[in-house]
Structures are given as C-alpha cells and as structure tokens.
Amino acid sequence: MTTQNTVVSQEEIAQIAKSSRRQRSFLQTATPYLYLAPALIFIAIFVFYPLMRTIQISFFEWNIIRDNQNYVGLDNYLRLLRDDDFWQIIRQSFVYLSISAVAVVALPIGLAFLTLQLTDKEVDFYQTVLFIPTVIATSVAVLVWIWFFLPTRNGLFNTLVQPFGIETVEWLTNSYTALPAVALVANWKVMGFHFLIALAGLKAIPRDYIEAAYVDGASGWALMWRVILPLFAPTALFLLIITLIQGLEYVFIPIRVMTLGGPANATNNLMYAIYQEGFQNFRAGYASALSVMLIALLGGLVYIQYRVLDRRVQYER
C-alpha cells in the first residue's frame, strides 16, 4: 500500500474556496425562488396569463365560439367611453361600494365593539346568529328574499311600510328601490362573516397593552381612541380592502336572480355588465375592455386607499 501526498497550491485552494462560495451564494439566492416557484407558476397560469389574454382580447371583436377575431384597435374602449350606460354603471358601482363600506365594514366593526360589553356566552350567541346568512347558499337565500319583496299588499316589506301610509311598492322593478334592495340582500349575506373577522381582530389585541394603558390612567374614550383603535386598524384596513375588491362580486348573484340588472340597467354594476357582455351577449372584446376598466378602477382605488390609510395603521412587529 502506498500513499501519495498531494501538494495543493495556495492558488488552487483559493479557487476551490471561490467556487464553493459561488455555489453557496447561488443556492442562497435560488432557494427562496425555488420555494416560491409552485405558487408563482400557479399565479402565472391562473392570474397573469388570463390578465394578459383579457387585455389582448379587448382589442378584438370576437363572439367566443367562432375562430375569427377581428382586430378593432381601441374601438371597444372608445365605444365604452361614449356609452351613457357605461357611466351609469360606473356610478352605480360606486353606490354599491359605498353601501358595502357602511354595511359590511362600519356596521360589523361597530357591532364587534359593542360585543365588548357582553359576556362570552352572549358573544357566542350573537356570533352564531349573525354568521348564519354566510353559510346559506346565496341562490336559495335570494329566492327567499324575493318573496319578502313581493310587490303586493301581503309582501313582507310592503306590510312593514303600509303603517307609514306608503302604498304597495314594486321593490325590484322600481328604479329607486331596486338597487338598495339588491344591496341589502348581498350585504346581509356577507355582514356576519365580516363581523367574525372584526371580532377576531378585537380579540387579538394583546391584553398587556390595554392593562398597561389602564395602569397609566387611560380609560373610556382615551383608551379606545389611543390604544384599541390603532391596534385594531390593520383588521379594519383588511376589511375595507377586501370589501372594495369583492364588493361588486357580493351583489352578482342577487342581481342575476332578482333583477337581471334592471329595471333599465338600474341595478347593474361593472361586474355584472362584464358577465352580460361576455356571457349573455357574447361580445368578448367589449367585455374584456370592461374588465380592463374594472381592474384599473379597483386597482387604483385600492392603491389610493392603501397609500392613504396604511400610513396611519400601526402593525405589531
């Protein structure tokens, strides 16, 4: 058995070390991307590709089934901007979002704060009662609401308004009452879920901070304003942002089942208009142009909201 001593020069050692560092550095850089890859691929396929394709289709005239797509440039966008219905739909979309901001953000937060005065058992009870609409199938719930809105003397809502001298109201075919009626049903369905989130946000506030504030002499409004609200702000911001993003979606099924977007477009919004154009009238290009507008509008609103409100929100780090 012979042994062979190998003499390794300084240069070679440096080379090996450099190569090893490079390898380590590559691995360090690549590892997070490898972890992220499945999610990124998923998002690329199911979010970015459809988004790009939507933008592409918005420059064409196409009825989805036929192969031929006619390039029309910006024509779909120009038609949108010239269409009075589009501006009516934009206005109504803002009305829906404003109603949702009150009904499924402010109201559940207010109710969640009120429950602070209650015992755990009472909180459980209200939590259950408010959450029930969330688990009922939307289409089933909407059919029941249609009965409440029956435009006859014995319809539930008409029975309620008759003592005030109001004659029979045709709730779903009157352009003044149809939108609030649809919004009521949609927000009733979601409110309980948002209440649960708000309640969880409140319960997650560390007791230490509140007790420390007590020790320092804070109580009542001062405690609420200076301690609890700032700590609750991330939850409120979350509720506001998801409402903004999903607010138009909440009313989709109620519109579809209760009013078909009418009377004369009075309950339509951007989300439903996309469905109408894309899957009722089969004008995929026009529907895609509407989708791009919706993305721009909601994206812009969420960005502004985030920029304005996020500065005032304090996160526990």
Binding site: L150, P151, T152, L172, T173
Partner: peptide, 11 residues
Amino acid sequence: AVNALDQARSV
C-alpha cells in the same frame, strides 16, 4: 297591473 318580472306568477 303589477310590474313584477317572473314574480308575477307568485302574485
């Protein structure tokens, strides 16, 4: 007449 879409049949 009532203006009630397909609620008319329920009416």
